[in-house]
Write a protein that binds this DNA or RNA. Structure first.
Lengths: 362, 362
DNA sequence: CGCCGTGCGGAAACCGTATCCCATCGTTAC
DNA sequence: GTAACGATGGGATACGGTTTCCGCACGGCG
């Protein structure tokens, strides 16, 4: 406990050590390293040699305390193993690294407590922005919670970015990067309808999840547009996972076995649905068609390859980071609440082999 | 450019602001917040109220400069979208958050340049440890490179952890968390052999990748143990992706079509292989058996569900973090090069539905 | 009533770096 | 020849906390 300095010799080299050993001042070393001040070639050489000898690296904490610092973004994600969000994270991380920014990643596990704790932790770190990934549960409290985050971060000179969530209401200092969720669902459902399907099992996801709400709404609109009655009994809610897809189809086969297609809220859900159909002796797509959503790699790896909606996840990540970077460079001149606060990216249907007209066996 | 203080009022609140507003000294505020010094109830209340009013959070940079700081681990990963490594990352992140540690994530994209840059960046951040994820390419240079990283980090009071890579040779200050790669492959190949398969297509991965080398070796040992001649012509190297699995099977069907089973180096490779077999009109497992490696969720989502080798990825992540934490608490008393430097976790075969004895149609 | 111990709050010294301001030196112009 | 000037390097200070060292006030006891 007491010997705090026991490992003193193992501590990292400071800029003072370098200065001393090179026989120059601390200021000169700093200038050589940051390179934003003219120094003589001789000085540079002397300093750099010592830097190499000592394997010196600047202390990022001290640097950012003194004002220099590397810009940092924080990525907060529910579950890092979810393929879709992993792609967004990749987009953010790639774009960040490209401009020399650093990225922190935290996982919330869908726990509001942890989300709060992490936002505060990131605030402590002085991040330039906090990027929140993934659909949100639209509790009454949600809007207030996010608005509080947004203001809190804004007051600290940071910024909140919502990716894949609906924008916040009112004059809240946050940026939203979204995709045309409802439109994708509309197009996907239209694809099924135009193939002749009328009885479609819909598995949009959790009823409270904003993503699921949008996907369901898009499907409903498509049914309307085609003049096909939409049967609420054909909708089954549940989590975005394989098991739900499997169980929902199992249950539907028992309750309403006349469906000829499955509109899954997610590729993973589609995979589960496909498996359940097979287990029941049904063929895909000969007996039942299936479509997914997200277009993660799994979609093209299933048999048959899945027709699905492509969502530009990685691009969204890049866009999110760009929005933050622009805002940061735009600086004081830009007002919050400006036009760029809500960015929407397009989606499109990717046609593969999991859809056929109904009743066409063989 | 010039108006550096333009946004002055937007800057975050400092501990001094809190102290002033609460009418107490800076030291008192610090003591209330860190809680490692007795303060009166009255003082605590006064300070906490102001903290809430101002939405104050401590500046992590200043704190860690002054010695307080939150311990941080860095996770360096080739590709965040790879399922296996994502699980390790999840394990590390979860264990880190559990003890209040922070985790940084960086992706290297298999680029040694970026790897170097990131290690240095992390060193600047003063991380407690750098955790390198994933199989390594065993170039001559690799050992030297890692040894340099290890010493460099060690000198800065940090530590290098290799996860899923072979341990470093010699007296290098690094910890390795590994799994029984070769043993898993041995068991998996034995499973096929005991089912009666003799002609097995082996897709171990890239020839230079240490993971692939181990998996191939394990398979070879199993063949030896069973007294079955191992045909090098049945081995096809390539990347751990879906396309490689597909193309390798396609090529093998042309060159050596007498194989009755596929031993894939990865579940994803197995998925590709399965697809190629189907495309050629072969059934799995009736005509050809397939096994994978890793036991990622995909394995149980394929049709048929894949028999594979379970690798405790998430556990490895947790173990890696625990190793770092222990070392940190063990402190100066522990010598580098101690026993705990190489941890090996077990693997086991998970039997599902993708294997049948050869020649048993129906 | 005075002394001393105790508990709590304040002033100040760092942590490692960037930057401002000034001193110095060599150079050029008058 | 001297003054003014540009190019560099050094010293000092600020960044926002933590922590050590002190001093003060209060209470109990002799």
């Amino acid at each position: 406990m007491s010997q705090r300095k026991a490992t003193s010799d193992a501590g990292r080299a400071t800029i003072r050590d370098v200065a001393e050993r090179a026989g120059v001042s601390v200021a000169s070393v700093s200038r050589v390293l940051s390179g934003n001040y003219p120094v003589s070639e001789e000085l540079r050489r002397r300093v750099m040699k010592v830097v190499r000898d000592l394997d010196y690296v600047t202390n990022a904490h001290a640097r950012s305390l003194a004002g220099g610092g590397t810009p940092t973004v924080a990525i907060l994600i529910n579950n890092i193993t979810g393929a879709a969000f992993a792609h967004v994270a990749k987009g953010v991380e790639g774009a960040a690294t490209l401009r020399g920014w650093l990225s922190l990643v935290g996982t919330t596990g869908d726990d509001p407590e942890r989300e709060l704790a992490l936002v505060n932790l990131m605030r402590q770190q002085g991040v330039s922005a906090v990027i929140l990934l993934g659909g949100a549960y639209d509790y009454d409290e949600y809007q207030l919670r996010m608005a509080r985050f947004a203001r809190s971060l804004d007051a600290a000179g940071s910024h909140l970015v919502l990716v894949g969530r609906p924008p916040l209401e009112g004059d809240v200092p946050a940026t939203t990067v979204d995709y045309d969720n409802e439109g994708g669902a509309y197009a996907m459902a239209s694809h099924l309808l135009s193939a002749g399907h009328r009885r479609v099992l819909v598995l949009p996801g959790h009823a409270e999840l904003t993503t699921a709400q949008g996907r369901l709404k898009g499907a409903q609109r498509a049914f309307e547009a085609y003049g096909v009655p939409f049967d609420p009994g054909m909708v089954r809610h549940g989590p975005y996972d394989y098991e739900h897809g499997y169980e929902a189809v199992e249950a539907a086969l028992h309750d309403t076995p006349d469906f000829t297609a499955v509109l899954a809220g997610t590729d993973v859900v589609a995979a589960g649905a496909m498996q359940a159909l097979r287990a029941a002796g049904l063929r895909v797509p000969e007996d039942v068609s299936i479509v997914g959503y997200d277009d993660i790699p799994l979609a093209s790896q299933l048999t048959p390859q899945l027709t699905t909606v492509h969502v530009p996840y990685e691009e969204m990540g890049r866009v999110a980071l760009r929005a933050v970077a622009d805002r940061r460079e735009g600086g004081a001149g830009r007002r919050k609440g400006a036009d760029g606060d809500h960015l929407v990216l397009g989606t499109h249907v990717v046609v593969r082999n999991s859809v056929r007209p109904p009743g066409q066996h063989g």
